[in-house]
Design a protein around this nucleic acid. Structure first.
Lengths: 217, 217
DNA sequence: AAATCAAGCGGACCGGGGTCCGTTTAAAGT
DNA sequence: ACTTTAAACGGACCCCGGTCCGCTTGATTT
């Protein structure tokens, strides 16, 4: 019962959290009125265009609304808040990565053995986090929401599953959290940009970590 | 050369980052003019008081300035921005934890063997992160600054040192990052509050992680 | 086709973060 | 004690995220 409230904006597109995690890439929200759907698309396109020009950090809601030719209220009605808009953009860009590890070719996809997939997952995620660093960063305004973002939940269940399949006994979920925490976008940026560490070394760190956690049996 | 710019506020108290990490708990900035030092104290006290009343999230800079009996510009001159003020508050509260693992009694302090200290470090940090969750959260507005916060750099060097002393070969620093990443305040909050996981299990996760990374020799 | 009405729309409005710059004042020099 | 000057002060000001509420419009029913 996500949308039965009285406030101005009952609920944005967000799935709320009651429903179980869908393992398909995040889809469009269901049944928007024609004009609403059209405006949603316009807004995302406008945001993407503006962001390419001036960077995610300088993206203002007013500008997005203006560029899309709609009122500001419409943006907030559709996406809830600035973070919501950025997450929507990010989710869209993340579908490629999701497809790769959910159903792509080995070693990332399901045709490789679990341990191999786990090793391959790190570098893929590292590059993803690096490539979309700016957007990811800007969408962190509300840290508490991090664990509610569908893409992140999907990563968690995926890694947890790989760990179990690879024979981990014990708290696979906590281990998954620890593993994912080691590829935080901000950390990757800190290491590679601020400290100038080559990506290979970050990759090596991941492989080292995985190897230590899952000693070859 | 961090503070040689011309803008209105050359540089706040911040040590900049050029100097090497001091291993003492973060000290007061040097040689403020008498009125400035007095106002700094007043501001921190006012902020602390207000925060106790309404929570870090609702702390406004106007309110702090008013409560301290100074102008708003003074707050920003002293602390740079809101984040700076919160970090200053946090640093102050963190000195207790720092003292504990830098020079406190075993098993946290230097009188215990490295591996034991490492095991003890987790639960201590977990509780610290939980206790100050709200403040930590509010001070995350600018994620990029995370790795510049003295307290965090101190943790990193500490854990790196313990890992090396415990006989880790290879990239101890990356391992330390991974370990610390697993005790992120937001994660701890997510696990214990949102998911209702008992603290013991989080502790156990830490011990498990450490044991896997450092198999008993 | 007309009526009905929930959903969508938009822009005036508000509060808070951050800046600017003219004024004040502590401290160093004479 | 007087001058000098760089630092500190303070509050008016700007910008942007987010809200409110009266108006409009696409869908649905009769």
């Amino acid at each position: 019962m996500t949308g039965s409230a009285s406030p101005p904006f009952p609920s944005p597109d967000a799935p709320g959290g009651a429903t179980e995690l869908a393992l398909t890439p995040v889809g469009e929200p269901p049944s928007l009125r024609a004009d609403a759907a059209r405006n949603r698309t316009r807004l995302l396109e406008a945001a993407s265009r503006l962001m390419a020009g001036c960077g995610a950090a300088h993206l203002t809601m007013d500008a997005v609304a203006a560029a899309a030719g709609v009122g500001k209220g419409t943006v907030f009605r559709r996406f809830g808040d600035r973070t919501g808009l950025l997450v929507a953009l990010l989710d869209h860009r993340e579908q490629q990565l999701q497809a790769a590890f959910l159903s792509g070719p080995a070693p990332l996809g399901p045709d490789a053995p679990p341990l191999e997939r786990l090793h391959a997952f790190g570098p893929a995620l590292i590059r993803h986090e690096r490539d979309h660093h700016e957007l990811i960063l800007s969408s962190r305004t509300d840290p508490l929401r991090t664990y509610a973002v569908p893409a992140n939940r999907l990563r968690l269940t995926h890694v947890t599953m790989l760990l179990r399949q690879a024979g981990v006994e014990g708290d696979a979920e906590l281990l998954a959290h620890a593993l994912l925490g080691s590829i935080d976008s901000v950390l990757v940026h800190h290491l590679t940009v601020e400290l100038g560490m080559p990506l290979d070394r970050v990759d090596a760190g991941w492989h080292d970590l995985v190897s230590r956690l899952l000693p070859a049996r």
